[in-house]
Simulated assay, not measured.
Amino acid sequence: MTKPTIAIIVAVSRNGVIGRDGDMPWKLSTDLKRFKALTSGKPVIVGRKTFDSFGGKPLPGRPHVVVTRNADWQQEGVEVAASLDEALKVGERLAAEAGVDTIYVLGGGQIYVDAIKIADLLQVTHVEADIPDGDTYFPAIDPQVFEQVEEEVVPQGEKDTYATRFATYRRRKA
């Protein structure tokens, strides 16, 4: 089997904010539906703090790999890895077992910084707002490295705090 695609999925404000106080600083029902559709059935890699923001249990229908430096940390229904590299190896095994071709990286901040160096694909929800007092940021997307291949403008829905743009970026061939 070929190596699975490593995809980052993220919602990010115009000023780069992805989080505040251990949560997302917006409510985007439209985006959550897209997130669920893209990630369902696929392995997800997530940092421990981000995992905790889910309420401390795995999102349904996706095998989870939680990255933590705490060797004693464990949680029912998830696999644990000490590094992103280790998590990707576990993710590859889980993808093969599930017969899927993509592993999603769900954050948080430091995981994204490390993963963007190796990701094949970025699934980005651009939140059309500047968010004050964010405490977690997404790294800048370098147009020399990633080419935007798709975009969909999404007006603010009834249950959305802001309008968004869904964009897909593919790593350029070296």
Rank of each mutant, 00 (worst) to 15 (best):
I131P: 03
L28C: 06
A95E: 13
Q123K: 14
E150P: 09
G107T: 04
R20N: 01
F54S: 13
T161Y: 05
T125W: 12
S13K: 05
W26E: 04
K89L: 11
A96T: 15
E128M: 12
A119S: 06
L28T: 01
A82Y: 09
R93F: 10
L122S: 14
S29A: 14
T39N: 07
R171H: 13
D160T: 01
G19M: 02
V65D: 12
G55L: 02
G19Y: 03
Q148Y: 07
D52H: 03
R172D: 07
K3A: 15
R48L: 01
F146S: 12
P4Y: 06
R165F: 07
E147L: 11
F138R: 13
S13E: 14
T39C: 05
L121I: 13
K3D: 15
V149N: 13
F138G: 08
K173Q: 09
V90T: 13
K57V: 00
Y112G: 05
G109H: 06
V124W: 10
T30D: 05
G134Y: 03
L121V: 15
Q156G: 02
E76T: 02
Q144N: 15
E128F: 06
D72K: 14
T39Y: 10
I116S: 05
V44P: 03
F51E: 00
Q148P: 07
R172K: 13
D31P: 03
E92D: 14
V153I: 05
K173D: 06
A167Q: 15
L122A: 13
V153H: 06
R171M: 12
L84W: 15
G61P: 05
R34M: 02
V124F: 09
D101E: 14
Q74L: 00
I45N: 03
A87M: 06
V66T: 05
A71I: 09
T50I: 00
Q156E: 04
G91T: 06
G108W: 10
L106Q: 04
L59E: 15
A98T: 10
V80M: 11
D31G: 08
F138S: 09
Q144R: 11
A87N: 08
T2Y: 13
G77T: 00
E76V: 01
L38H: 12
P43H: 12
V66H: 11
A115I: 01
V105W: 09
T39K: 12
Y104K: 12
P58E: 04
R171D: 12
V90P: 07
H126L: 11
V10N: 02
V80Y: 05
T161Q: 07
G108E: 08
A98C: 06
K117G: 03
K42C: 09
L32C: 01
S13N: 09
Q148S: 05
G134Q: 03
K173A: 12
T50N: 00
G108D: 04
A140W: 08
G109P: 04
F138E: 10
T161A: 07
S29D: 11
L94G: 11
D52Q: 06
D52I: 03
K36A: 10
A167G: 10
D142E: 08
T5H: 08
E151V: 12
V105M: 06
H64G: 10
L122E: 14
